[in-house]
Amino acid sequence: MNIFRILGDISHLISILILIHAVSTTKSAQGISLKTQAAYVVVFVSRYLDLFFRYVSLYNTLMKLFFIVSSIYVVFLLNRYKKNSEKTNDIFPVWYLFGGAFVFALIFNYEFSIVEILWSFSLWLESVAIIPQLVVLQRTGEAQLLTTHYIFALGLYRALYIPNWIYRYYTEGRMDKIAVISGILQTIVYSDFFYIYYKKVVKNLKFKLP
């Protein structure tokens, strides 16, 4: 376990806490893509099937349980605060992402078994799952600051996994090509957002300094 992975995991954890905090304090699901959040439930459930047959560490188990339970809780919260009358910006055809991830999982996997295909599927789906959320952000125009912090923390998590993989390559001499390529894809999906975030949030904060 290296510093990049720990920071990445913490960033992932914080992103979910920000999201839960934002939705429960405003009692509103506005600006949050239910499609993206539902996709994360599928991501975590399909990836963490190994909870049943592989023990890595207490940390690993607790984090997996946290991600599964919190993602389901978020979908529950969003459904509770969703107003049917509201005009929805959550229009991205999410089934393309599911379909594409499934095809990629059939092509790129370490073994043609249900568990391995679902594991690969979860990585590909995760790498593009934020797209409906980015579409909502783009269509809404003005976003809540917390929403942008949430997306940033979530993007930072996979970006931090990249130095983690480089570090592991040099220290352990091993590489997981599916995780690495899908992880890089995920970071590319975020790159446009990172740039806008930097321009709007980071520069504005600096601007306020005396």
């Binding site: 992975r5 995991d9 992932h12 190994d50 592989r54 890595v56 560490s57 690993n60 984090m63 997996k64 991600f67 370490y110 594991w119 996994y161 993989w165 592991r168 390559y169 001499g173 091993r174 590489m175 997981d176 090509k177 599916i178 995780a179």
Partner: peptide
């Protein structure tokens, strides 16, 4: 390098 899945990651 060896290609080994990172099943210890999240």
């Amino acid at each position: 390098f060896k290609v080994i899945p990172f099943k210890d990651e999240l």
